[in-house]
Design a protein around this nucleic acid. Structure first.
Lengths: 221, 221
DNA sequence: TTTGCTGTGTGATGTTTGTCACAGACTTCA
DNA sequence: TGAAGTCTGTGACAAACATCACACAGCAAA
C-alpha cells in the first residue's frame, strides 16, 4: 500500500492517472509498491523478458545499446513523469528488450504489473493517449538520433549535447563519449578545441558553457 | 465507394478491420477511395502536416531522411499490409512529419481521414492493437538502425542488405548508397570486393547473390 | 552510326574518427 | 605524506569513409 504522499506525487507526475475513477486508482495503487534503486543498477538488459510498466518518480535511467567492441551509445534517457517506452513496446508486442537500461541517478519508481497495464490501455482514453504520446516522442527522438549519427560530425553532436545540458555540467569525458557512441580521447580533443574558441571552460569533471549561442550555432550548421 | 474487390483485398491485408461490425466497416469504406500514386511521388515531406492514415494495398514507399550535403538514408520501407507509422505518430501526437516519404514501386492505397483514425483507435481493440504493433515494430527497427549506423562498418551493413533482399537484385549502386546513407563509389568498391570473394556476381543494375551464407556470416561478425 | 545519357570502375587524396601508449594532474584514503 | 586510483592531455599512427576526377561500357534515341 502506498502512502498519501506517494499517491500525490504520482498524480502530479502522471496527471492522466487522475482521470481514472477514484476506486479504480485506489485498486491500482494498492497492487503497487515503491521501489528504490541505486545508481548503476542494470534495470533490464537485452533479450530479457519484460515484467511490468514503470512509473518514474525521481532519478533517471539511461537506455543504451552496446557494441561488441565495448563501445556504447545512449538511445535516450527516461526522466520522472516519463516511462520507458521500450517496456511498453515489450508489453504490447510481447517481445523482449532490445537494449539495456541502467540507473543513472538513483531511482524511485512504482511498478505496474503487465496485466494492469493492458487493462488500463483498453479502458482509459487518457492512459492510452499517454502511452501513444510516449511512443511518438521516442520515435521522433530515435529518428533524430539516427540522422545525427549518420550525417553529423562528432564535433557538432558534441556541441549539441553541451548546449542541451544545464551549464555547469558535471560529468567525465568518458561518460560523454558513451552518450555519443565515441571514444574518450576524441571528446577530450574536441572539448579542448571548444575551450580554445572560448565556448567552454574545462575543469575536472566539469564543463562550464561560456558561449551557449556559439555552441548552438555550430551544432546547427 | 469502393468495389467489393477492393474491399476483399483490404480485409486480406488488414485482417483486424474484419473485427469491426459490418455496418461500421461499410460506413468507413464509404468515406474512403482508392488512390493510385506513381513511382517517384513525394507522398509527404518534413514539416508537412499529416492528413490521414494510409492503408497500403500494393507497391511500397521509402521513408528517408536527407542531409544538408545531399546524402540520404532510408529509415524504413512501408509495405502492403503495413501503414506508415510516422503518419500515426503525427496523428496521435499532433505533430508534423519528420521525414520524407517517396513512392518506390507505384502505390495503390486507401486513405482513412484523421477523424476516422481517432475514432477507431478509441473504439476497437483490434485496431488499437494493430497500431501498437506497428509502433513497436518500427521502434525496434529504428533502434537496430541506430546501432548499425553507429557501430557497424559499411561492408557489414552492405552484406546484411544484400542478404535481406531476394536474389536477383535489380537496382543501382547509387540506390544502395542512398539506402545505407553512404556514397556510390564506396558501394561499387565494396561490391567488387564481394564479387572477388565469390559472394555475388555483378551486372548492370543487377546483383546476383551466389553465396548467401557467406554474406550472412560476414554481416553478423 | 552517331550522340548522349546513365551506370560503373578506379586511382589519388583528404578528412574524420578510432586506437595505442604514456605522461601528468587531481582526489581520496590510509 | 605517500600511494593508489581516476581523470585528462597529447602525440603518433591506422582505419574507414568521402570526395574528386576521369575513363569506359552499355543502352537508347535520333
Amino acid at each position: 500500500m502506498l502512502s498519501d504522499d506517494i499517491r500525490a506525487r504520482i498524480l502530479l507526475l502522471y496527471p492522466m492517472l487522475g482521470e481514472l475513477p477514484t476506486a479504480e486508482l485506489d485498486g491500482l495503487l494498492k497492487q503497487a509498491s515503491v521501489m528504490h534503486i541505486p545508481s548503476g543498477t542494470v534495470l533490464f538488459d537485452e533479450r530479457q523478458i519484460c515484467q511490468g510498466f514503470p512509473l518514474l518518480l525521481s532519478g533517471n535511467l539511461r537506455v543504451i545499446k552496446s557494441s561488441s567492441q565495448g563501445r556504447e551509445l545512449q538511445l535516450y534517457r527516461v526522466m520522472p513523469g516519463e516511462s520507458c517506452i521500450l517496456t511498453s513496446s515489450c508489453l504490447l508486442g510481447d517481445t523482449r528488450y532490445q537494449a539495456r537500461g541502467i540507473v543513472d541517478e538513483a531511482v524511485e519508481m512504482v511498478f505496474l504489473p503487465a496485466s494492469v497495464f493492458h487493462n488500463m490501455l483498453a479502458k482509459y482514453d487518457a492512459f492510452r493517449h499517454y502511452v501513444f504520446q510516449l511512443f511518438t516522442g521516442r520515435l521522433t527522438d530515435m529518428m533524430e538520433l539516427v540522422t545525427a549519427v549518420a550525417f553529423q560530425k562528432l564535433d557538432q553532436r558534441l556541441a549539441a549535447l553541451l548546449a542541451a545540458k544545464t551549464s555547469p555540467i558535471h560529468t567525465t569525458h568518458q561518460a560523454i563519449a558513451d552518450e555519443l557512441g565515441s571514444a574518450r580521447e576524441m571528446i577530450s580533443r574536441l572539448l579542448k578545441g571548444f575551450s580554445e574558441q572560448g565556448w567552454v571552460t574545462l575543469g575536472r569533471e566539469q564543463i562550464v558553457v561560456t558561449n551557449l549561442a556559439a555552441l548552438k550555432k555550430f551544432a546547427a550548421l
